[in-house]
Amino acid sequence: MTEAMKAGVPPSKADFHRVIEARSDRWYSACLKITRDPDLAADAVQDALLSAWNKRDQFRHTARLDTWIHRIAVNAALNLLRKARPGTFEALETDVESGESGPEQRLRDHELQSELAANLGRLSDIERICFVLKHLEQWRAREIAEEFGTNEGRVKQAVFRAVRKLQAGMRDLQRAQV
């Protein structure tokens, strides 16, 4: 954090360039895990940066600039996904086990190189998003429920299903390695 930022001055252009260099891998990764689409992930980070720049007067200096932008980027990824794949979040309302992702999605998954990350492809969009938000982004179930306009119980169910599928994927992986 620069001296100017400590003193309560809005972050400068140089501060933004610095955090892009230092932390944009993290933002992009979070958005990629949510969208599983490199183009949407890149657009989400750009939207977040412009939004953060335009609202930089509201930046609270008790927070870190990179974590602030990270949170905005995750929200931007959710918004872009909502626009790109309408109905994705409605699956929460049905509260039933949904199928795996389609072939188009699996094609995009080559971007996620590790086998473990590729296992996220076993999950439906909504299971993956709830899992990523809860366990990787540390959102509370209540916050996720508010974001999707549903109740905590449904979010917890989706996360539970996601963990169960990932565990099964890990077991398959371990068996294949033996």
Partner: peptide, 19 residues
């Protein structure tokens, strides 16, 4: 999974700086 990071292509990062 939390620690796994992916780097954006260089032209994408350049686009963010330009933005």
């Amino acid at each position: 999974l939390r620690d796994e990071t992916y780097s954006p292509p260089p032209h994408v990062r350049a686009r963010w700086h330009e933005a």
